[in-house]
């Protein structure tokens, strides 16, 4: 097994490129859903101490909306689409054709719509992944929570915590032209999956 945390610069580049292609597809999908121009940054592939992960999204007590999907297949992992509460509410307004600021809390319909967005984004991400790596991955049904970032990230972190003290995250930030949508898309491969991914793209 490749030691996860001992990747060469080339292998990191390869992972970043995989993330990039996935994210490009995902940004396009998001842009089509809300009919707005969506920018993304170059994905960050980072190995960070587990306890620092919540800082990526504003600290452990920041209130965020998260759509969570488990990914099954040869390289299992978790996908999280995270948005600050305000931006999630704007996105719901966009999806429902209401002016920004209308949504004050999420009802069943809103939750369902956000989950569907998570679904679409994940689908396009994994699809790109498949084209690049030939590893097919199947997402679970989406699940949604609105809560403190630390609490939400617990879900993936405990899993990684069993294997080590660090987390490898492939993260992309999305930003709409009018700043209304600002989300983070995280792929957190299970321990053991990174080796499979790196091998699949044939980088030594």
């Amino acid at each position: 097994m490749i030691d996860e945390f001992d990747l060469t610069p080339n292998q990191l580049d390869a992972l970043r490129e995989i993330g990039n292609i996935g994210a490009g597809n995902t940004a396009t999908a998001l842009s089509q859903v809300v009919n707005k121009k969506i920018d993304m940054n170059v994905p960050k592939v980072s190995l960070i101490p587990i306890e620092d992960v919540p800082d990526l999204v504003g600290g452990p007590d920041a209130i965020i909306v998260a759509v969570f999907l488990r990914v099954y297949g040869k390289a299992p992992g978790n996908i999280l689409f995270l948005m600050p509460k305000k931006n999630a509410f704007f996105l719901v307004d966009d999806l429902m054709g209401r002016p920004h600021g209308t949504t004050q809390e999420l009802d069943e319909m809103d939750i369902s719509a956000l989950k569907e967005v998570g679904n679409i984004l994940t689908g396009s991400y994994l699809n790109a992944f498949f084209h690049f790596t030939n590893i097919s991955m199947v997402p679970s049904i989406p699940s949604l929570a609105m809560d403190m970032a630390g609490a939400i990230l617990n879900v993936v972190l405990v899993q990684l915590g069993q294997m080590g003290d660090h987390a490898m995250v492939i993260e992309t930030k999305f930003l709409a032209e009018d700043d209304s949508i600002n989300g983070h898309f995280f792929l957190v491969p299970d321990p053991g999956s990174l080796g499979t991914l790196v091998k699949a793209v044939g980088v030594e």
Binding site: G59, P60, G150, L153, N154
Partner: peptide, 23 residues
């Protein structure tokens, strides 16, 4: 007090840990 961490202290301090889920 961060995740996977602990602190000890005495009055009048307050010890706080943010955002526990399954922790």
């Amino acid at each position: 007090v961060g995740m996977a961490d602990y602190k000890v202290g005495r009055s009048p301090s307050t010890l706080i840990s943010y955002g526990l889920g399954s922790c």
